[in-house]
Design a protein around this nucleic acid. Structure first.
Ligand code: FES
Ligand code: FES
Lengths: 144, 144
DNA sequence: ACTAAATAGGATAAATTTATCCGAATAAAT
DNA sequence: ATTTATTCGGATAAATTTATCCTATTTAGT
């Protein structure tokens, strides 16, 4: 469904968000430890997310990653997925026709479109704040 | 979403089905031409599908691939996907936790589960015959 | 028996994704 | 200024997926 990079990106961002929500900045080391991901690879992904303004990166001592409190409700899962995996999962044909086209549909188009749109809806309406709060309250988990 | 191999597998199987439904056996060459896929790679995928009894392969002159008419309604998209990509897409956690677990859920579990189950339902209830008939009637397409 | 046409399957190559390594840049603290 | 902790970014390596090539096997027809 999502690439490994995207999975790490989602988990990392939620972890950053759950700390930012409590006023804490987190380091790459802390992130990859808490989401159980390879450190150097996670660094690459965070670079992408920083460039795309999903997270803020701060260099130097006491540096790390954070997200402004005011942004937590504005950033959606879709922003992360789009930055890393692109938009094929929203727009692409389920069996790889060059484009998903209503008047030249593939055999699964009609049913697939519905599922894809629901996935899209999920990603576009789920914001970081709610995900972070669930993690903070112990209602959901980022590893194991 | 699906691997390239799986996309080719689905298209190839539907193409075989649409011909079998009209009593015609098709060759690898014809298949990869009509679904626009690399021939040798498609051969590998058809080998898998033949081993898993999704399609019948016939060797030698006038050989090729076919599916018994009586099977067309029994084979579901899920059978193809399972044979090629496995069942992670049905059962796996959306962000890669070791298992999708109701009492140790990831942050997107509740929403993702619904989408995943609908995808599962789509794949498990769509049979080859209906897909083949849509292709034969010109209602849907396998390439471009 | 021989030939021709087809799939099976092993070996290999190319491309992409995933992962690691290391020096450069940055910033705080001393 | 120097040291230290941190991210950035380029180079590279490992693993996986995608793709190709070639020989073996099978089958029908002659
Ligand atoms: S054309 Fe395939 S999903 Fe729309
Ligand atoms: S635990 Fe992640 S989808 Fe169920």
């Amino acid at each position: 469904m999502f690439s490994k990079a995207c999975e790490y990106g989602i988990k990392a961002t939620i972890y950053i968000a759950s700390n930012s929500h409590e006023g804490k900045r987190v380091s790459l080391k802390g992130i990859s430890k808490h989401i159980d991901s390879p450190e150097a690879f996670t660094a690459k992904i965070l670079q992408i997310l920083a460039r795309e303004n999903v997270v803020n990166s701060i260099r130097g001592i006491n540096g790390g990653f954070e997200i402004e409190e005011s942004q937590l409700e504005k950033i959606q899962l879709a922003d992360i997925v789009k930055a890393i995996d692109g938009d094929a999962i929203y727009k692409g044909c389920g069996i790889g026709l060059k484009e998903c086209n209503e008047i030249h549909p593939c055999p699964i188009h009609n049913d697939f479109k519905i599922v894809r749109n629901e996935l899209r809806n999920l990603l576009e309406t789920t914001n970081l704040k709610s995900l972070a709060m669930d993690v903070n309250s112990g209602a959901s988990f980022l590893k194991v």
